[in-house]
Amino acid sequence: MKKLLVIYWTFFKMGAVCFGGGYAMLPILERELVKKRGWTTKENLIDYYAIGQCTPGVIAVNTSTFVGNEIGGIFGGIMGTLGFITPSIIIITLIAALLSNFAHIDMVQRAFGGIRICVCALMFMAVAKLWKSAVKDMLGTVIFIMVAGCSVFLDISPVIYVILAATVGIIADKIKSTSKE
């Protein structure tokens, strides 16, 4: 029981300082989990991170579940995840409550006008960075263009695209391996 609480608290602290997620949080995880606690190794952490990127869901949550599970089994995984997301839930709930009280003020609206342009620029940067790791060849480019084009003009749930693309990936792999034989 005490161990589970320690897991919860450790992940709570990391959740409170990890901004934005993604690669930015890797050094924080390493310092806390590998160097300070010795709960996992750097190699394991990088493995979890890589698998976290190709399993559904929030990467930080996937990584927390992996590490928590390694130290404390299933409940360790659950406690690690709950710890990591608790600060977010508290902070965002406070901000959401504040925003709905202040959103109508002229100055706040103008500030958000500026912030929205900043979001545009941030998105652009993120897409440029993601591009290299996601779109690697001809088939990838075709899938990218088809999905981007269709989702701009058609009203289909993203779920359908993800399932279709996974199927295409598996079929392409089958064709490639049969043509080799």
Binding site: G140, F144, V152, A166, A172, D173
Partner: peptide, 18 residues
Amino acid sequence: AAFYGMRPATMGLIAAAT
């Protein structure tokens, strides 16, 4: 193979959101 197909699709969805 599945993720090979899913990554560019996710990228396409994000581009449309942009």
